[in-house]
């Protein structure tokens, strides 16, 4: 008896998910740019003033800018971990034939650690943003 093959995923789920991760990284970079801009503006004001050295404001904003860089690095690592899984195992499963859908489904979902790290990086960025708002 010929058995109809399981339909191939028409929704391009792994591709959509990997694009969603890329968009999320881009959205974080937009928030970063404003925090970094505040720091650079403050550095510019320091160099224009007569007093030598950095002001406390610039140091504080520098700390915010560094925090933003670290949180972005964490989010990029999360995205890379997911992209590797989505483009590796899931596509491998697809090319391996319809029967392997069940076999790959167990591995391609996100781990709690990745999503927790992503959410935590956004919370840390929010703290840096609030500090930058106070300092600017």
């Amino acid at each position: 008896m010929f058995q109809a093959p399981e339909p191939r995923d028409p929704g391009l789920q792994p591709e959509r998910t990997s694009l969603a991760w890329r968009r999320t990284v881009l959205a974080m970079l937009v928030a970063d740019l404003f925090i970094w801009r505040g720091w650079l503006v403050s550095l510019g004001a320091d160099s224009a003033s007569d007093t030598s050295g950095l002001s406390g404001r610039s140091l504080g904003l520098g700390l915010c800018a560094a925090t933003a860089a670290v949180t972005t690095a964490v989010l990029i690592i999360c995205a890379l971990v997911r992209l590797r899984v989505l483009h590796g195992r899931v596509h491998g499963g697809m090319h391996g034939g319809p029967g392997r859908f069940g076999g790959t489904s167990r591995q391609c979902g996100p781990g709690t650690l990745v999503l927790r790290a992503a959410a935590a990086s956004v919370v840390a960025l929010a703290i840096a943003a609030a500090a930058a708002i106070f300092l600017v």
Partner: peptide
């Protein structure tokens, strides 16, 4: 374990909320 399509849809919904937050 849910169908991987539902898992990934749930993950994308999470990411959409994260982008709203960002």
């Amino acid at each position: 374990t849910p169908d991987y399509r539902f898992s990934l849809a749930n993950e994308r919904t999470f990411l959409a909320w994260i982008r709203t937050s960002l």
